[in-house]
């Protein structure tokens, strides 16, 4: 019976639902929102990439060795694990801003997969290049050393011969 009359009474009360898109809903100050990145502070240790559970952070690298930070808000689960993993205060931080919707034009999933693979590729290429350069350098050093040694030997023999 009580419910019957409270149902009629409810007619004279305000609805409790909020008109969400037109008026804001409750959001705490430390809402887990988008991950922010401060490039100037980053020390490029890639720990965030290793820690990230869904793989929403990846670093690509160009041939000069400069790294670029990539972040996908649609893959991110906003757990903040990257921020905890970051050894440099302030390089990564979690904002209270909710992520905007992904649009079809962004091609956010397939595009990200491609980008992810490319980023890994670019790092491999850089590593290979570095290795090749190192090998080249080592070879060059070796050659130089050998040449030097040869030259020294030459000089030595010369000296010897001159001495002799």
């Amino acid at each position: 019976m009580n419910t019957f009359f409270s149902a009629i009474g409810n007619l004279f009360k305000e609805p409790v639902t909020t008109k969400y898109p037109f008026e804001p809903t409750y959001k705490p100050d430390d809402y887990r929102g988008l991950i922010g990145f401060e490039e100037s502070l980053c020390i490029w240790c890639r720990r965030c990439e290793l820690a990230c559970p869904p793989g929403a952070i990846v670093f690509s690298q160009d041939m000069e060795g400069k790294q670029t930070y990539h972040y996908n808000r649609a893959v991110c689960i906003y757990c903040g694990e990257c921020v905890r993993a970051c050894p440099k205060e302030g390089a990564l931080f979690q904002t209270a801003e909710p992520a905007p919707c992904a649009l079809k034009e962004e091609n956010i999933n397939n595009g990200w997969n491609q980008l992810f693979d490319e980023a890994l590729d670019s790092r491999e290429k850089f590593a290979a290049e570095k290795k090749r350069k190192a090998a080249e350098k080592a070879a060059a050093d070796k050659a130089a050393a050998a040449a030097k040694k040869a030259a020294e030997e030459q000089a030595g023999t010369n000296n010897e011969t001159s001495a002799g």
Partner: peptide, 15 residues
């Protein structure tokens, strides 16, 4: 739900 959001920063997946 709002209390959980206040404590954990998210309504559903608390992490």
């Amino acid at each position: 739900m709002e209390l959980l959001e206040a404590v954990c920063g998210n309504r559903i997946q608390y992490d």
